[in-house]
Simulated scan of single mutants.
Amino acid sequence: MADTFSFLVEAMKNVGVSKAYGQPRQVGGEEVIPVALVSFGFGGGNDAEGGSSGGGGGGMVLPLGVYRDAGGHAVFRPNTIVMLACLVPVISVIGSAVRRSIRAARS
């Protein structure tokens, strides 16, 4: 169990802002800094009666866009496809709320 904990501690040292903001790159003659949404999780457990244990984890990275230099200040340029995909749940919830409001107003 101590080996597992020390492994997780070492893995967490690599997670942080450096994973959300990439190294500056030269693209088309201008410098851009990639930006991503980084999410991860892990868990574990054991069966007290059977003496077995287990665990697992996973992660996800969504490329949100880039920061680029525009006249001496940084400007964020979003990744349109990912932004639209992230808006689908929000639009769905808003649509459901509007529909329920209309139904309630009719009653």
Results as ranks from 00 to 15, higher is better:
47 D>Q: 08
49 E>I: 14
52 S>F: 03
14 N>M: 11
65 G>D: 01
12 M>S: 13
43 G>P: 03
29 G>Y: 13
42 F>Y: 13
26 Q>W: 07
99 R>D: 12
43 G>F: 06
24 P>N: 10
41 G>K: 07
84 L>H: 05
87 L>F: 04
11 A>V: 05
10 E>I: 05
39 S>E: 06
30 E>C: 04
18 S>D: 08
13 K>T: 15
77 R>D: 01
71 G>L: 03
25 R>F: 06
105 A>T: 11
102 I>V: 14
74 A>D: 14
57 G>M: 06
76 F>K: 00
87 L>E: 06
47 D>V: 07
94 I>L: 07
41 G>D: 03
30 E>I: 10
30 E>K: 14
66 V>I: 11
40 F>Y: 12
12 M>R: 14
6 S>P: 02
21 Y>V: 12
65 G>Q: 01
6 S>D: 12
70 A>D: 05
39 S>R: 09
31 E>M: 06
2 A>N: 07
30 E>F: 09
84 L>R: 12
26 Q>E: 08
28 G>D: 12
3 D>F: 14
30 E>V: 13
74 A>G: 12
17 V>T: 13
61 V>F: 08
79 N>F: 03
70 A>V: 11
11 A>I: 10
35 V>Y: 00
54 G>S: 12
103 R>L: 03
17 V>W: 11
76 F>D: 06
54 G>D: 04
31 E>R: 14
62 L>P: 01
61 V>M: 12
78 P>H: 02
59 G>C: 07
70 A>T: 05
100 R>N: 13
74 A>Q: 12
44 G>H: 10
32 V>R: 09
8 L>M: 15
79 N>T: 01
106 R>T: 02
63 P>S: 06
27 V>Y: 06
48 A>K: 10
64 L>P: 00
93 V>T: 05
58 G>H: 07
103 R>W: 00
59 G>K: 03
22 G>L: 10
75 V>F: 03
59 G>R: 01
16 G>A: 08
11 A>G: 13
63 P>A: 09
81 I>M: 12
104 A>T: 07
49 E>G: 11
104 A>K: 15
49 E>W: 09
52 S>I: 02
107 S>L: 08
107 S>A: 14
29 G>H: 14
73 H>P: 00
56 G>S: 14
1 M>W: 11
16 G>N: 11
95 G>H: 08
69 D>E: 15
